[in-house]
Design a protein around this nucleic acid. Structure first.
Length: 494
RNA sequence: GCACCGGUGGCGAAGUGGCUAACGCGCUGGUCUGCAAAACCAGUAUUCAUGGGUUCGACCCCCAUCCGGUGCUCCA
């Protein structure tokens, strides 16, 4: 069975495959490291991660390149305000970015490419375009791309630029360029700005050129897939195609993957709306990294997701149910006897097929989720009726491992991730932003909790239920939930 | 203005021209429990924004209307 994926370029769902027969060569537009990442950024990276993991599930190797934009206008401005060299400024946010990616369970690409470390390749690419008179130098020393020379411009975003060039010269703000749509390849430096002294003159790269140069450097002139947020489709990706295909006369990326923007509480996320959240903001409010991951992945990537706190609570509960189920099957003592019938095995097999097929169908994560919950109910039910055997349990664990190779939420690292966020807030003098009850919960060590649980168990043995309930309530107030079972008491942090 | 996407139960969200409209969360009742929690069982949309049309048959196709969102500029 093939993995099928919507291709922005063709406008159709098409099979995705590694054209070299080994590894899927793909490029993902990474972050501009000028600030902490927000949940909108992470929705995109999370779905690229979903794509990675699904491609692997479908048997493909991976060669994934992601850039880090570590020089641009905002970086120069912010680093200047902070009085830091840009390298020092960006290093901090690059580190933070990867910490956040780790917290969300996003796998690292095989290769990270920093713009400032590949300037020479960008210069070479611009020179190749200049040799064909497709790149030209304007009066101020900046270099631009002559869009009129690429008739296919607009093929990705399905825009028609017929006639636009004609009116360009009336645009007085753009007097440096030959045409209004022409975009910068190389920006001449203003005094005091970071610059590179190259054959093109003193300056720094335009934004688009870095992705073209680095993608082709590491993946070849033509490669399998290029990914990014929907906003990048135009003009960023359109410009990448123009630069690259004019230079090489080869198709650039075969498949284009764009992740839709999310809404927050029904509106586009923005600082002025007050609905702008970084991952760290949410962790400090007591939300779990796993729930954030699960929520952002639960709505398929081509649909708009409305991020709400109710939705986050729902995801927290859904993940909790999956984990409870997982530990139950993993830790339970299931009889070695042969199953009375194959109904459980059949349910697991069907769930497995549905799960894989759903992902293969343009990454339908909602359906994939549903397939797992169907099996969960069937197996829980069998377990309750003492009909679950070791063989079935092992099959279930194998399916859960497959599920988790994609969704990656079963192993519980939430408390340690939250602690890390708090430690970060403390070091930044931002502990005041942390939720008070969260701090209370984390103030109890595991040993403290175990001691209180033991006290309650003793009280119960003595049938002193008043005392037992008091302890349970005390723990509950601090966010610790107790569960009695045949095998003893389990507790978990809410 | 032009273009695009969407409107499915209390909420989130799949889905198909024709079997009982997935799944999750929530809620209600039951089983279990000292009581809870967890788990399971049952219930929770005669209906898929509205009005027309095509069809033997549409939530799914077409047209119109209303509503929400997005892009056309930096933005994941």
């Amino acid at each position: 069975m093939a993995l099928e994926l919507f291709n922005t370029l063709s406008g159709k769902i098409e099979p995705l495959f590694a054209s070299d027969g080994h590894a899927l060569r793909f490029y993902c537009c990474g972050p501009t490291v000028y600030d902490y990442g927000h949940i909108g950024n992470f929705r995109t990276f999370l779905h690229v991660d979903m794509l990675r993991r699904t491609a692997r599930l479908y048997g493909m190797g991976l060669h994934h390149v992601m850039n880090i934009t570590d020089v641009d206008d905002k970086i120069i401005r912010n680093a200047g305000n902070a009085g830091l060299p840009i390298g020092e400024y960006t290093a901090k946010f690059e580190r933070a970015f990867f910490e956040d990616m780790d917290a969300l369970g996003v796998e690292r690409p095989e290769q990270i490419a920093r713009a400032t470390e590949n300037i020479g390749d960008m210069v070479t690419l611009i020179e190749r375009l200049a040799a064909q008179d497709i790149a030209y130098k304007a009066e101020d020393g900046s270099w631009y791309f002559r869009i009129a020379r690429f008739p296919e411009y607009g093929k990705l975003s399905k825009k028609d630029f017929e006639g636009i060039e004609d009116g360009a010269r009336v645009d007085v703000d753009e007097y440096d360029k030959d045409a209004a749509r022409d975009f910068a390849l190389w920006k001449a430096t203003k005094p005091g700005e970071t610059s590179w002294d190259t054959a093109l003159g003193k300056g720094r790269p335009g934004w688009h050129i870095e992705c073209s140069a680095m993608a082709m450097k590491y993946l070849g002139d033509s490669f399998d897939l290029h990914a990014g947020g929907e906003d990048l489709m135009f003009p960023h990706h359109e410009n990448e195609i123009a630069q690259s295909e004019c230079a090489t006369h080869q198709p650039f990326a075969r498949h284009w993957f764009h992740v839709r923007f999310l809404l927050v509480e029904g509106k586009k996320m923005s600082k002025s709306e007050g609905n702008f959240y970084t991952l760290r903001d949410l962790l400090l409010k007591g939300h779990r990294a796993s729930a954030i991951r699960f929520l952002l992945l639960s709505v398929p990537y081509r649909h708009q997701l409305n991020f709400t706190f109710d939705g986050l609570t729902e995801s927290t509960n859904a993940v909790e149910r999956l984990r409870t189920f997982y530990t139950r099957i993993r830790d339970g003592k299931w009889p070695e006897s042969a199953p009375a019938d194959d109904s459980v095995a059949a349910a697991i097999r069907l769930g497995d097929e549905k799960f894989t097929a759903a992902l293969g169908n343009d990454l339908n994560t909602a359906e994939a989720r549903a397939a797992i919950f169907d099996v969960l109910r069937a197996v829980n039910s069998a377990a309750d009726q003492s009909k679950l055997t070791r063989t079935d349990a092992d099959a279930m664990l194998a399916l859960l491992a497959k599920f988790d190779s994609i969704f990656a939420v079963l192993e519980d690292h939430d408390a340690e991730l939250t602690r890390a966020a708090i430690a970060w807030a403390e070091s930044e003098g931002r502990l005041g932003e942390a939720d008070a009850s969260l701090l209370a919960t984390l103030s109890l060590s595991d040993a403290d909790i175990d001691a209180l649980v033991a006290e309650r168990t003793l009280a119960k043995k003595q049938r002193n239920f008043a005392r037992a309930d008091a302890v349970r309530n005390e723990l509950l107030e601090k966010g610790i939930l107790l569960e009695d079972s045949k095998d003893g008491v389990r507790w978990k942090r809410k």
